[in-house]
Every structure is written in structure tokens, then in C-alpha cells.
């Protein structure tokens, strides 16, 4: 019985702290009526406050725990951030594609497909650039001139010459890249600026270059 009293005394200052803070693992003796006591080995050692006795008295313990968890969280965030490099060594997205007159009307140019992953299509009214990445899972579709369509070898998605999807699992049309005329009169393509059909962006300036030269 005596140790129970000393426990109570021990708990007095702790109670205030507990009230202010978030709920902590309950201190053992709160119930007023003495319950049948657990066997000795199921109780903490007598007079041992345990490590979770957080109170004003052991502010340093609290600070220690906060420091510990703070460090764990900060280093987790740090290592996650570490996996996102600042500089990428990838080919530039923006490039010049030569003079517009080099393209014939109705042609799907595969000249930049290997290196830059775009097709440049010239129609009677002008140019547009399709990014040669299947919208399904990123394979490189093939241009089949005889069928007048793009066909993806991975899962059989098909796209019309305009980039519209019409067969297979592709969920949306091919993406278009920015086309413009550079200062020196060459075609300029910028793959980092994309135009998505489903967001009605194909009508925006840059998605289509008017050219009738």
C-alpha cells in the first residue's frame, strides 16, 4: 500500500502537465477503488517512474524526445529531397527545326523523332508538333503513312494524324508542343510547353502555327 501512496504523490505535479498536453499514456493508479492487483511481473518495477513520465520536472526529457523525433522527421524529409536532383543532364526541350520550307504539305516529319521525340506535321494551313510519347504508357508510336495513322506497338493505341486517339487503350490524344518562328526564320519547337486537347488547348496560339508560304 505504501508504494501506492508514494505513486500518488509522485503523480500530483504530473497531472497538471498532462492536462495541458496531448493525452499521454495514462499513469497507472487513477481508479479510486483498489482493483485486484496484477502479478508483480505485469507491473513496472516499484518506484520506477518509467520513461514516459512527462512533466515540468523533466522538461529536459521532453526536450530530448522532441529533439529525437524532430531529427528523425527532418532527416527523412532531407533524404527525400536528396532524391530530387536540381540539375538534369537531359537534352534541351527547345530547339530549332530548320526552315519551314523544308517541309512538304501533308508530311509527317520524323526527322526529330529520335533525338527530340516530336513529329512535325505540315498541313495546308500551317504546322503543328506532336510529342511522340504515347499517352497510354509512354512508348514511342510509329507513323504508318500507308494507314495514315500513328500506332503504338506496346498496347495497340492508334492516333489520327491530328493526334486524336481513336483505337486501343490510350486515354487521350497525343500532346502537342509549342511551334513558332524564331528570329532567324527557322521553325522553333519547345517541348516544355505542351498543349492538351482535353483542356481545349489546341486552339491556343503556339499549338498551331499558321503558315502558307
Amino acid at each position: 500500500m505504501s508504494d501506492q501512496v508514494s505513486q500518488e504523490v509522485n503523480n500530483q505535479p504530473a497531472a497538471e502537465a498532462v492536462a495541458q498536453q496531448a493525452p499521454k499514456p495514462a499513469s497507472p493508479q487513477i481508479s479510486p477503488s483498489p482493483l485486484p492487483r496484477k502479478p508483480k511481473q505485469d507491473r513496472p518495477p516499484e518506484g520506477d517512474p518509467g520513461i514516459w513520465r512527462l512533466s515540468r520536472r523533466n522538461l529536459l526529457t521532453l526536450a530530448g524526445w522532441m529533439g529525437f523525433f524532430g531529427f528523425i522527421i527532418a532527416s527523412t524529409i532531407g533524404s527525400l529531397r536528396y532524391m530530387f536532383p536540381r540539375v538534369l543532364f537531359e537534352p534541351p526541350m527547345k530547339f530549332k527545326a530548320g526552315s519551314p520550307s523544308e517541309f512538304t504539305i501533308g508530311e509527317v516529319s520524323e526527322r526529330f523523332k529520335d533525338e527530340k521525340r516530336v513529329w512535325i506535321v505540315r498541313e495546308r494551313e500551317g504546322f503543328y508538333a506532336l510529342i511522340s510519347i504515347c499517352t497510354h504508357l509512354g512508348c514511342t508510336p510509329r507513323w504508318l503513312p500507308s494507314d495514315n495513322k500513328f500506332k503504338c506497338p506496346c498496347h495497340g493505341s492508334g492516333f489520327y494524324k491530328t493526334g486524336m486517339n481513336f483505337e486501343g487503350p490510350a486515354p487521350r490524344p497525343l500532346e502537342r508542343a509549342y511551334v513558332g518562328i524564331a528570329d532567324d526564320g527557322q521553325l522553333e519547337i519547345d517541348r516544355s510547353i505542351k498543349f492538351l486537347y482535353e483542356k481545349n488547348e489546341w486552339t491556343k496560339p503556339g499549338a498551331f502555327l499558321k503558315y502558307t508560304g
Partner: peptide, 20 residues
């Protein structure tokens, strides 16, 4: 730049690729 035809995932993922 050259996607082989057909392009397949490792065999144990082909069930999932089929579901694609």
C-alpha cells in the same frame, strides 16, 4: 527512339500489362 513491337514487361507483370 525505337520501341520494339511488341514491348512487354517482365513476365510476372504481364497479367497487369494485360489489364492495361
Amino acid at each position: 527512339a525505337l520501341t520494339p513491337n511488341p514491348s512487354k514487361a517482365p513476365w510476372y507483370f504481364l497479367g497487369l500489362q494485360e489489364l492495361l
